[in-house]
Computed example of a mutant assay.
Amino acid sequence: MNNKCNLIRDILPLYVEDMVSTDTREFVSEHLEHCEACRAELEHMRKPADIIPNTDIVPLRRIKKELFIKRLQTVFLTAILACAIVTVIFGILTSPKFFSYSDDLFNVDSGADGSITIAFDNKVTGYSCMKEFNDETKTEIYQINAWTTTWDIYSSNRGKQNMVIPFDRETNVQIYYAQNDGSEDVLIYGINDNAYQDTVTLPRQIFLPYFMLAFLVLAILAVLRFLLKNKQAIIVWIDRSLLFPISYMAAHLCTKGISFTSYSSKRDFCIIVLVAMLFYFAMLTGISLYKAKKRTSQKNFED
């Protein structure tokens, strides 16, 4: 290999990239026509280079994936907490405020077809009715109440509330108004036969047994966790199960406070369960984020 070949080979990288002048290109091309070794070097340069995989990409991808999962969990936690707060506020704002009996609260009229119409005052935004039947006296007994809510007072207009009881020739009708404040129910339609005299509609104590059951389950799981603290596979499931009673009790305290009675038990129970589910997933996600952050901090400390 002479000095001219050395010069050509120094120029070949620029020649391949078309970064030489016209005179230089002609000079290199003329030499390549007569030099087999330089032509072989040119062909070698024009071949695609073998890409050596960078082993550093694997841990970078893992870190990127972990960061994405952490970001997704954070968004999920924020969304769940927001939903839980909105549900609690909604439950408080729509909690019924029952009206005590008054003469201007409603009007009771009998229609030409024998039906009974109860027209509530405009301040009433909701009512409920329970029906019983007395076989001895062949009497249909209705217990009604009326309420409004903070939400309805400030942001809703449901219109005038009316209730119609159809006529039945074979039965008598008694209608009582349940005040839901510890006072006696008031007979507003029908003949007083003293069967339901001095009756008081009491709130249901439905939530106290559920709260005590959740507390009992929490205590049992806590004892099991202490006894099985060396069995990590079981501890994981116990920790997840512990969140169920904690979520329920927290949801109850957020929606009902320390009260365990309710005149609208079905509604209140549904709201408590919904909030409890949101709290459970929020705590589960929060614990996962805390453990991931703890592992990262420990790894950084070891490095």
Rank of each mutant, 00 (worst) to 15 (best):
M19T: 09
D239I: 00
R39D: 08
F260E: 02
T285E: 01
N192P: 00
C129P: 09
E33G: 07
A233I: 12
L274G: 08
T171S: 09
F207L: 02
L242E: 05
I272W: 00
E17M: 11
V20L: 11
K299N: 11
Y280R: 02
Y210F: 11
M130C: 15
D121P: 05
R169I: 13
H34R: 14
Y263I: 02
A112P: 05
V173A: 03
D135F: 13
Y189P: 00
D168A: 07
Q205C: 06
A84M: 07
R295Y: 08
S265P: 15
N54G: 09
N300K: 13
M45Y: 04
I271Q: 00
S100W: 03
S102Q: 07
N122Y: 12
Y263Q: 00
F215S: 15
F98M: 03
I175P: 00
Q174A: 05
K256Y: 02
A282L: 03
Y101A: 08
A233C: 07
P59G: 06
L289P: 04
G182V: 02
K131I: 15
G159A: 04
H252D: 00
L77R: 04
D303Y: 14
V273H: 03
D193G: 06
L32W: 06
R25S: 10
V16E: 05
I153P: 04
H252E: 01
C83R: 03
V20W: 05
L77T: 03
L221S: 08
Y196R: 09
A219C: 10
D113F: 06
L12Q: 01
R62H: 12
I57V: 15
I206V: 13
T296F: 09
F269I: 07
Y154H: 08
F244E: 03
E36P: 07
V173K: 05
Y127N: 12
K299I: 05
I287C: 04
M163A: 04
D121L: 04
T296H: 09
T149H: 05
D103H: 12
R39S: 11
R158V: 09
L7K: 15
Q73I: 11
T171I: 09
A214V: 01
I258P: 01
L289G: 00
V236H: 08
I85T: 12
F269D: 06
F167R: 04
I271V: 04
A233M: 11
R46P: 02
I175M: 02
R61C: 13
V86R: 07
A84E: 01
A84G: 01
T285K: 04
L202V: 11
T139I: 06
I80L: 14
E41Q: 07
K160I: 07
Q73H: 13
T74Q: 12
D18Y: 10
T94S: 09
A178H: 03
T94F: 12
I191A: 13
Y189T: 01
T24R: 14
K160E: 12
N172P: 04
N172R: 13
R9Y: 01
S128Y: 12
Q298S: 08
L72T: 10
K97A: 14
G286D: 01
D109L: 11
I69R: 12
L60N: 12
G91W: 02
V236R: 13
D50Q: 15
F269Y: 10
S95L: 10
A119L: 14
T201W: 02
G114H: 08
W151T: 06
K256L: 06
A112T: 15
I51H: 10
K70W: 15
